[in-house]
Design a protein around this nucleic acid. Structure first.
Lengths: 179, 179
DNA sequence: AGAACCATGTAATGCGTTACATGATTTC
DNA sequence: GAAATCATGTAACGCATTACATGGTTCT
């Protein structure tokens, strides 16, 4: 049940509506955890029943009402317990890798196009992460304590995208050397 | 429905029982696709109803009977269709990254222990992949066409583990510089 | 004697995706 | 006039995990 914890981390920083959370999950935390608004709304109402978060309905003018969620003491306790629990090794899942395994059964041009598209995707994300890093953490040597986590996660994103990019380049070099 | 396709790729190489597939998924394809035996058995029986695979019950002496599955013509067609479909970008999911984001809320020693354990895990997998690569693909310059896919996937595994390892080292350096 | 391997499943529950549904406001 | 943004949800379905269940053989 990790979406719950991702939400607690996000709410510990700042209270937010489900809609806000969905947008945050497209950016910062979303680097390593995606969630749709449907999932978030459902999880939030479960968490409210469990007492981990509290709600306040806020009326706005010119915009629909919103429900602002805040982390409760019980939520903080849950979060602290989770943070103290050892993390299980991640399982990678790559559809592209499964396809590449079956390279000899596939049309070479289709694979090349697919890998090129993936390469482009890695390039874009890498550029985005690098820009964020320069903008929000220009001085990595002197980070405020509450900024270290965000910086570390961004670096993780950069390293993973670089690895993905390098992999695509290797694959393309192989596929092109072949003919 | 990607487990289905991973199974088709595996069966296209060699017919196998559910049990065999579960073990293969712990090794080669399992690098990028894990599945439990329960999931595999269920998926296989669905695929049989759909006509993508055929079964033959094989009696063995001293061991339980087994059901050997083989890919059918319809299965090959399904596989070919899937291979020709563009692959959607992967979503990374890292519980550790979410925890690291909340670094300032956590006990430093617990985090360090967690990252050290992760580092060790990356190191082990990297060693395993490197050993496999040297053993099965000693000459990367001259690969048989049907071996290229496996080699490429192994290289992907190596690159990802290296990136994970580098990330852990960076994190540990930061956390140790800090006190 | 106990653990590990071979071999196949059912059942319950939870997590995630896709489709559907609504409706005002603001920007192009 | 159309599209995007803000805002919240329900319903159906499928994918994944965990627990439970069985039973013989081989290795230590």
């Amino acid at each position: 049940m990790a979406l719950e914890h991702a939400i607690l981390v996000s709410l510990a920083e700042r209270s937010a509506s489900g809609y806000d959370l969905a947008r945050r999950f497209d950016a910062s935390i979303g680097q390593f955890w995606k969630a749709s608004h449907q999932q978030i709304y459902k999880t939030l109402s479960r968490m409210e029943s469990a007492g981990q978060v509290s709600v306040e309905v806020v009326a706005q003018d010119g915009r629909p009402d919103k429900k602002v969620y805040a982390i409760t003491r019980a939520g903080h306790a849950e979060l602290a317990g989770w943070l103290a629990t050892p993390t299980a090794p991640e399982v990678y899942r790559s559809e592209l890798a499964v396809k590449l395994r079956a390279l000899h059964l596939a049309d070479r041009d289709v694979v090349v196009a697919d890998v090129r598209a993936r390469r482009e995707h890695h390039r874009e994300r890498l550029a985005y992460y690098e820009a964020s890093r320069e903008r929000y953490y220009p001085d990595a040597e002197h980070l405020a304590p509450e900024d270290r986590g965000g910086y570390i996660v961004l670096r993780g994103g950069v390293l993973i995208e670089e690895a993905g990019l390098a992999w695509c380049d290797e694959i393309l070099a192989q596929l092109e050397a072949e003919r």
